Simulated assay, not measured.
Amino acid sequence: MTERIRVLLVPGRGKPFPEHWSVRWEAENPEFHWAPEPPGPPYLPDERVADLDAALRASDEPAVLVAHSAGCLTVAFWAQEHSGPVRAALMVTPPFLERPDVTWTPLPFRTVVAASRDDPHSTFEQAADTARQWGAEVFDAGAVGHLDSKTGFGPWPAGERLVKALIAGAPVTG
Rank of each mutant, 00 (worst) to 15 (best):
M1E: 06
R4M: 15
L9H: 00
W21Q: 07
V23E: 13
P30F: 00
H33C: 05
W34T: 02
G40R: 07
G40W: 01
G40D: 09
P41L: 14
P42V: 04
P42F: 01
L44A: 11
L44T: 13
R48N: 11
V49M: 06
L52S: 10
D53M: 03
R57V: 02
D60E: 15
E61M: 10
E61N: 09
A67C: 11
H68F: 07
A70Q: 12
A70S: 12
G71C: 06
G71S: 07
G84H: 06
G84M: 11
G84I: 08
P85C: 04
V86P: 01
M91C: 14
M91I: 15
P95F: 02
F96D: 06
T105N: 09
A115F: 10
S116A: 11
S116V: 06
S116E: 08
D118L: 01
D119P: 08
H121E: 14
H121L: 10
S122V: 02
S122T: 05
T123V: 03
F124C: 03
E125P: 03
Q126R: 11
A128G: 06
A131S: 05
R132Q: 11
Q133V: 00
Q133N: 09
E137L: 10
D140Q: 09
A141K: 02
G142N: 10
L147H: 02
L147N: 00
D148C: 13
S149Y: 02
S149K: 03
K150R: 12
G152Y: 04
P157H: 12
P157W: 06
R161Y: 04
A165W: 06
L166V: 10
G174Y: 01
